[in-house]
Design a binder for these strands. Structure first.
Length: 504
DNA sequence: TGAAATGTTGGGGCG
DNA sequence: ACGCCCCAACATTTC
């Protein structure tokens, strides 16, 4: 029995009866953002189909779907390489094709005589419509086409408020979704397909494949990604990371996750985004590691935000460009390209913001606490539209996903669902003193002020001239002065927000 | 998953 | 002993 809670067995039998092809024909597993072999329902379905399995990844660059950013393309190349090796080690191989998915799958089915195509569902704008069209086309061509739940624990249509609406506040969402998520992660079906198969039945000949390096997925700026090397894309790296996290950091997660200099977060987000590990596997590991303790609950609720963001984006596919709260449509954003560029490059003069932006550029990642401060700075101190910040993060974050990136930016801006109120304006100096008291995170990324010591490293502009001289810091030369004064910027942001409310 | 302004309280110095 | 002031510490309100 395939594991797919929503697809009843009856429905499936009808499909296999209606299929005009022999069950001995091979099946295609269409890999997308599920680049793993363990706990992969589409792969399980293909194995159940009982014939040769043809794994394929399609680079579909149709405009309806948002193209991955530069950092994400780097990850994708690494991850495809790892999946390819994992398949080869099991007597199989990954077929790479480029083009429109519907057309490519049709061609592949004709070339190989495949009778079925299996994949795991995604929920992003554009992808949903594309996949529906693919499924209809394959079925009308007489193939079996089935998709499965695995990217989320609770699919967006599984959950509605009592009045039939979508959840727009996290707490009631999670109250309703968490029990469903626990069942999905711990169900008998979920446990059954957890292990990666040791071999995959291969066809007599594999269809032609593109060469991965020909896709040129790695960014043109070769020096950019040199700092990404600490990451280990691929299923093995994901499992190792999960293991390390659940053994060491999970217990103290609730407090440690806010301190950017501590190894307190899971750093699983890129692995989850590319589906190198399933949320169900992560869930089970967290529950196993510490049966009690609020570290686990806090961590699971982060998986909950992932679910919540996908829930919202599925029901509101306009959110990548529209404010969830439409009163923000009238917000008086500044057009300030030079300011935006200083923020991107980590030259704002606020050490915590600069450290975060430089960490992002160097490593393809930014600690979550710092993401909030850096995003708040762009939106509220500089009054720059959140969409500009979202675009930069989209291009530079290894874990950028349409749902999480967009909705987290809207959350910070105050324009989102259950968002932080606009007037929650982070003080970047106070945040640094609170969460990086000795300044070690800051000086790791902003070394030019490292000799200021913890007393002044959070606000060099407030240091006495003697301290600056002793530390070799010349403001405006070796490190920028603050590009805006905090108090003035705060008042300006509050005034802008007030203008919103007084408008008719 | 804030910060700043404003309000309240209570201890201690002092006339 | 008492009231007064100061101010830190904490609580509440406002943005």
């Amino acid at each position: 029995m395939w594991r797919a809670p929503l697809d009843g067995a009856t429905k499936k039998r009808e499909h296999s009866l209606s299929a005009s092809v022999s069950p001995k024909s091979p099946s295609i597993v269409w890999f997308r953002r599920d680049l793993r072999l363990a706990d992969n329902p589409a792969l399980q379905a293909a194995l159940h189909w009982g014939a040769a399995v043809i794994p394929v990844f399609i680079l579909d660059e149709a405009r309806e779907m948002r193209a991955p950013g530069g950092a994400a393309r780097w990850w994708l190349e690494q991850s495809l390489s790892a999946l390819s090796a994992d398949l080869a080690a099991r007597g199989s191989r990954l077929v790479l094709r480029r083009g429109e998915a519907r057309q490519v799958l049709g061609e592949l089915a004709r070339e190989t005589g495949a009778g079925a195509v299996f994949w795991n569902r995604l929920y992003d704008p554009g992808v949903v419509e594309r996949d529906k069209a693919v499924k209809a086309a394959l079925r009308s061509a007489g193939l079996m086409a089935e998709s499965f739940k695995s990217y989320l624990l609770v699919e967006p249509w599984e959950l509605r408020t009592k009045t039939g609406g979508i959840y727009s506040v996290f707490t009631p969402f999670w109250r309703a979704a968490r029990p469903l998520a626990a069942v999905a992660a711990g169900s008998v079906e979920a446990q059954a397909g957890v292990r990666a198969p040791s071999t995959l039945p291969a066809p007599a000949t594999f269809p032609r494949s593109d060469i991965l390096s020909d896709w040129r997925l790695h960014p043109k700026i070769a020096t950019w990604t040199s700092g990404f090397q600490d990451w280990r894309p691929g299923e093995a790296g994901a499992l190792k990371r999960l293991d390390a996290f659940s053994q060491t950091a999970l217990g103290a997660y609730k407090d440690d996750r806010d301190h950017p200099n501590r190894p307190g977060t899971s750093r699983l987000s890129p692995h989850l985004h590319w589906g190198e590990i399933s949320p169900a596997t992560v869930w089970r590991a967290a529950e196993r590691a510490h049966a009690a303790g609020d570290g686990v609950d806090t961590f699971l609720s982060e998986l909950g935000w992932r679910e919540f963001n996908h829930h919202l984006l599925f029901h509101r596919p306009d959110l990548p460009t529209s404010n969830f709260r439409s009163q923000f449509d009238a917000f008086p954003w500044r057009s300030a390209p030079d300011d935006l560029e200083r923020w991107r490059r980590g030259m704002t003069g606020y050490p915590l913001v600069d450290a975060g932006m430089r960490e992002l550029w160097s490593t393809g990642f930014m600690h979550n606490r710092v993401r909030m401060v850096a995003a708040s700075f762009l939106i509220k101190h500089l009054l720059i539209d959140w969409r500009h910040g979202e675009a930069w993060f989209w291009d530079t974050l290894l874990d950028a996903s349409p749902a999480s990136n967009v909705l987290n930016w809207q959350w910070v801006a105050g324009s989102g669902a259950d968002a932080a109120p606009f007037f929650r304006i982070f003080n970047p100096v106070a945040q640094g003193e609170r969460f990086d008291p000795d300044g070690r995170y800051i000086t790791r990324w902003v070394p030019e002020i490292s000799r200021l010591g913890s007393a002044f490293v959070h606000a060099p502009q407030a240091a006495p001239a003697a301290a600056l001289a002793a530390a070799g810091v010349r403001l405006g030369e070796t490190y920028p002065r603050p590009m805006v004064d905090h108090d003035a910027a705060r008042q300006r942001a509050l005034a802008a927000f007030r203008s919103l409310r007084s408008d008719p």
